[in-house]
Amino acid sequence: MNTLASIDRRILGRWAFSGAAGLTLGFILLPLFFVTWLAFFRQEIPAFPPDGYSLKWFWAIAKHDKFVQGFWLSLQVAIAAMVIGLALGVPAALCLARYRFFGREPLSSLLLLPLVVPGIVLGTSIYVFHVELTIATELPVIGSLAGLVAGHVLVVIPWCVRLVAASLAGVDRSVEEAAQSLGATPPVTFFRITLPTIRPGIVAAALFGFVVSFGNLEMTLFLVGVGRTTLPIAILQYLEWRIDPTIAAVSVLQILLIGAAMAVTDRFVKLSRVV
């Protein structure tokens, strides 16, 4: 009797625990669910229950220049920041994973610092830096595209260093040594042995870099110039004014784009192993 009751309690406890896990997952996804629902409303006012459903808001996006331009700018900046970030971050990760030298730990912390410094502080400091640069060089640095990309490179670098260094730590060095003892020069060893083995790490770094840059809001607020908006800022400014199915449709497109990028990456490297 007693044991039966305790088994019952244990099963009940397990169900409650799984239920709690499911509720948390549901809660995380809830805002995406609501915004998707709103995108298909027929009427413009976000009142429940909806009068009916329609796809018209998706066609209306093309008429909003701010979203279209913001999307292209975000795309360009994210691609540029990802490429430059990889070019700087992958060699640095290689160095941190393969060489032991004085000052290695502080250097590694320095490269991860942009991840720790809050986005608002990052934005304000880079902004005043641009002010000083503009005064010193008399070049229009404030609000320039180059300044924006440079800021984004800064937030991409830590992800590249972290993900590539993590995947380098899992590489068996004896394979590289075997290649070198068979006469391969260091560059050949790198391109034929090391690079293929850390490819998942580099793909993950590219994806994370792209997504972190594409979605960056706080730092970017301080770096966009007059008449230049990225997609997240365009969405934020619209939402400060109103919420309607148009902005919901834009949000759905962003969800789809990011979801697609993740699904593609998942084919190269299992997300559960790199996140």
């Binding site: 997952l25 995380i28 996804l29 809830l30 805002p31 995406l32 669910f33 609501f34 915004v35 629902w37 709103l38 006012i45 976000p46 009142a47 429940f48 997504v211 979605g215 809001l217 997240p232 969405i235 934020l236 939402l239 919420i243 902005i247 919901a248 949000s251 962003q254 969800i255 990011i258 979801g259 993740m262 699904a263 998942d266 997300l271 559960s272 996140v275």
Partner: peptide, 28 residues
């Protein structure tokens, strides 16, 4: 895992839009 990561990547403004839909006077 992807379901957990997706909202993270989608950005804060979009998720705030979801809550605004739910929390309004005529919201869900």
């Amino acid at each position: 895992i992807m379901l957990v990561v997706l909202p993270l990547f989608v950005g804060n403004a979009v998720r705030a839009a979801g809550w605004m839909t739910a929390f309004g006077n005529k919201g869900f």
